[in-house]
Amino acid sequence: MIIDTTEVRAINSFSRLESLKEVYGLIRLLVPIFIPIFGITIGILIIVWLERKLSAGVQQRIGPEYAGPFGILQALADGTKLLVKEDLLPSRGDIRLFSIGPSIAVISILLSYSVIPFSYRLVLADLSIGVFLWISISSIAPFGLLMSGYGSNNKYSFLGGLRAAAQSISYEIPLTPCVLSISLLSNSSSTVDIVEAQSKYGFWGWNLWRQPIGFTVFLISSLAECERLPFDLPEAEEELVAGYQTEYSGIKFGLFYVASYLNLLVSSLFVTVLYLGGWNLPIPFILIPDFFGINELGGIFETTIGIFITLAKAYLFLFISITTRWTLPRMRMDQLLNLGWKFLLPISLGNLLLTTSSQLLSL
C-alpha cells in the first residue's frame, strides 16, 4: 500500500487550520465577556479607594496612603486578604443556602451591566426591554440575601435577610413607575434609544429637566436599593451585628462586599443613562467637531470620549451617596417602609400619570 505524503500533509494542514479556527472562535467568544468583567473589577477597586478618601476628607482624616501611591492599592490588598482567609461554615446552618446566597447576589447584579451603554457603540446587548431587564434581574438579589440569612442559622442574620427583602420590595415598586415614565418620554425601553432621545439639545435635552420628580424618587430609591446610609437597615452594625453577613468570612464575605459596590456602580450608571444624557456632552453633539476643530467624530476617539463622559456623570451619584453616608442618620425600619409605601409610591404613580397625560395630549 502506497501512502501519498502530499495528501497526508494536506490533511494535517487542514486539521491544524480547523483547530486554529476553533481557538479563534473561542477567543472571540470569551474576550467580550472578560473585558467588561475586568473593567468592572477595576472600577470597583477605584470606587472603594474613592469612598475611603472622600470619607476621610469629610471626617478630616487622611485615609489610606501606604499601600501603593496615595493608598490606591489598599482595596486590592484587602481583596487579596479576603481570598486567603479561612472560609468558615456554620455547624448547624444550611450549607447549601449559605454557600449559594453570595453567588446569587453577585451574579444577578453583574447581569445588569449587559444593557448599560458606555458609548454609542459600546453595549453588550441593546435589548428593546433593557431597563425592565435591569429591574427584573435586580429583584433577584434579595433572594440571595434572604437565603444567606436563613442558611446562617443566626437570628440576627435571618432578621437582616428579612429586612433586605422587605426593603427591596418597598423601593423597587416606586422605582418602576419612574422607569416607565422615561420609557414613555423616549418611546422605547432600550437604554441606547433613551440616551439618543436626550442628545438633541445637549444639556437642556436631558430627562433631568423633563422628569425632576421622577429623578428625585429614582435617586432615593436607588440609594435604598444599594442599602446605603441612611437605608442600611439590613446590615446595621449597632442592631444586627452586620445582619446577613454576620456568619460569613473569607471569599464569601468578599462576594457580599463586591455585590454592594457592584450595585452602587450599576445604579449610578442607570441614573446617568436615564436622566443625565448618558454619553452625551452638555453642549449639543453636533457642535463638538467645530469646537475642537475636528472634521468628523467617530471610531475610537468618539468611544473614548463617551466612556469618559459616562463615568464622569456616574461619579456625581457616587459622590452624593458617599457624602450622604456621613451626613444623614440611619432611619428606623418603620420609617423606611413608610417612606417607600406612603410617600414615594404615590408620588411616582402621580408622576407616571402626569407623564402619560402629557404624552396623550401631544399626540
Score class of each variant (00 low, 15 high):
Ser139Trp: 11
Leu363Asp: 09
Phe132His: 05
Ile47Cys: 07
Phe203Gln: 03
Val115Asn: 01
Phe218Gly: 03
Phe215Ile: 00
Thr323Gln: 03
Ile309Tyr: 03
Gly161Asn: 07
Ile72Ala: 14
Ile27Arg: 15
Glu51Pro: 01
Ala56Thr: 03
Ser152His: 08
Phe118Lys: 06
Met147Lys: 10
Thr355Tyr: 12
Phe285Thr: 12
Leu54Trp: 14
Ile140Ala: 13
Ile42Cys: 05
Ile194Tyr: 06
Ile62Thr: 10
Tyr201Arg: 03
Gly149Cys: 04
Leu76Ala: 15
Thr310Met: 04
Ile309Glu: 02
Ile42Phe: 08
Phe70Ile: 08
Leu110Thr: 05
Ile42Val: 13
Gly68Asp: 02
Val179Asn: 00
Ser199Tyr: 11
Pro289Gln: 11
Ile213Asp: 07
Val31Tyr: 07
Phe98Leu: 00
Pro230Gln: 10
Pro90Gln: 02
Arg332Leu: 12
Ser55Met: 07
Ala77Pro: 00
Thr6Phe: 10
Phe14Met: 07
Arg210Lys: 12
Ile347Asn: 09
Ala56Cys: 07
Glu225Lys: 06
Ser139Ile: 02
Ile320Leu: 12
Glu247Ala: 14
Asp94Lys: 10
Phe143Cys: 05
Leu345Cys: 08
Ser362Lys: 13
Gly306Pro: 09
Val23Gly: 12
Val241Ile: 14
Ile2Tyr: 13
Gly340Thr: 00
Trp206Ile: 00
Arg121Cys: 04
Leu361Phe: 12
Gly149Trp: 02
Leu208Ala: 13
Ala165Met: 15
Ser249Ala: 15
Ser268Leu: 02
Gln245Cys: 15
Ala56Arg: 10
Thr6Asp: 05
Ile37Thr: 05
Val48Glu: 04
Phe256Arg: 04
Pro230Cys: 10
Leu345Arg: 04
Phe132Pro: 00
Ile307Asn: 10
Ile286Ser: 15
Thr41Tyr: 15
Ile33Pro: 00
Arg325Glu: 01
Ile40Arg: 10
Val131His: 03
Arg92Asp: 02
Gln198Asp: 04
Ala67Asp: 09
Gln59Phe: 04
